[in-house]
Design a protein around this nucleic acid. Sequence first.
RNA 1: ACGCCAGUAGCUCAAUUGGCAGAGCAGCGGAUUCCAAAUCCGCAGGUUGAGUGUUCGAGUCACUCCUGGCGUGCCA
Length: 344
Amino acid sequence: MTDVQSYSGPNRVFSGIQPTGNLHLGNYLGALKKFVDLQAAGWTGIYCVVDLHAITQPHDPALLPDQTRQIAAAMLACGLDPDQSTVFVQSAVPAHAELAWIFNCVARMGWLEKMTQFKDKGGENSERVSVGLFDYPVLQAADILAYRATHVPVGEDQQQHLELSRNIAARFNQQYDAPGFFPEPEALIEGPGARIMSLKDGSKKMSKSDPSDLSRINLVDDRDTIARKIKKAKTDLLGDLPETEDGLEGRPEVENLVGIYSAFSGQSVEAVLAEFGGAGFGTFKPALAELAISHLAPITERMRAYMADPAEIDRALQKGAEKAHAISAPVIKEVRDVIGFWKS
RNA sequence: ACGCCAGUAGCUCAAUUGGCAGAGCAGCGGAUUCCAAAUCCGCAGGUUGAGUGUUCGAGUCACUCCUGGCGUGCCA
């Protein structure tokens, strides 16, 4: 147990999405849909297009503004309400960069050196990746703590970064003798269907960087494309769907497709198998395609409508930035006091 | 900062004395299959890092620049 006074502020969720490349089904089921569910459940949510993170790796300045709007459009199209939640662009709110610098002086080199994502992305080229990429998790901590967010919906791959955020929060509180100043943010556990795999390889996560476009369903795909991709999705040699969950053992591609069906329908995997167990993919795949299309089509349509009206997106983002600033500015002010910066 | 080596398709690499830029893998399409996979058949993929020069002709030779790797020095 700890005798340190714990954080006592309100619960808040923070999450961010990088404006790089196209959004796909994995992003939707793994992130966007959960944001909307959290909103519906009454959580105060702060959702951010993290363009500061996007520039840690080479990018095209000519494309970034529209990529940023596209993520925002997706957030709004999926049902995030700009009044109920806060939807904005990271670089529009100064608190992120400012707090990140301060956290740079709280975090320790050794903490960051252990980050596996950095090792993965940098790989053997670690000499020529940007310092920003190395520092990425610190900025992430700043993102979360600038709003004193208490919960972060994350996938397994982000657990390690969240751990770092907790370490930074704890160390800041202790170093500046400010018990409970920052919360130690917790992960919100993902439900089933969180991890969407490639349609061509059940052992790989669905990814925007996969060379095959058939491996993923993009949020901008039209109905025919979605149906075609599901039809061409890899299955296996066993033929039929199993009757029970145990039967999915060792069949990652089938498990993935069933998982997607389950996520869309809201049914448990068991229930899906009760319905389709013993059936061939010739019957399951069209059903899955129909289900996916019926859920995605309205979103895609709304997204297109937003993209056709960038000014509308910009208005929402402007408002979001003001809300975000209103929350974070007082936190930053307190931080400056705690640290001992000169105040104007 | 200097020296050496390298840069060719998304990736790994070929291309003889200067003589039509190619292969494997990956990708896409078709056949096949309840759907896929595998297998066959086919398609596409390029400013040869950028530029200048020599030449009838440059991936190849010369020069300049860019990028990366290795080595040495400098800051100390």
